[in-house]
Amino acid sequence: MHLITCPWCGPRDEAEFAYRGDATVARPAADAGIDAFYDYVYTRANPRGWHTEWWHHAAGCHQFVKVVRHTLTHAIAATGKPTDTLPVPAE
């Protein structure tokens, strides 16, 4: 049961959040073409290790929280607002 620190609400239980995937992919410019959008929507690094991802505080403040979480240990290194740049620890 992850404990996720929402930048607006403080530490909250996983039960309050909805996971919303890889936060390292950025929506391409409108004219970037199908291949760029294909990468944005479909392809993923899917690391076994630290992963920067979105958790939506759906049962809380309705804000998207950026989370750096380890996909093997489920340790959480950092959380922040969508516009924050979060440091990713070395393995």
Binding site: E14, A18, Y19, D22, H51, E53, T71, H74
Partner: peptide
């Protein structure tokens, strides 16, 4: 469980 994981274990949620 609904989040990326290689852990072969899940949470209580």
């Amino acid at each position: 469980d609904g989040y990326n994981s290689y852990a072969q274990r899940g949470t209580l949620q």
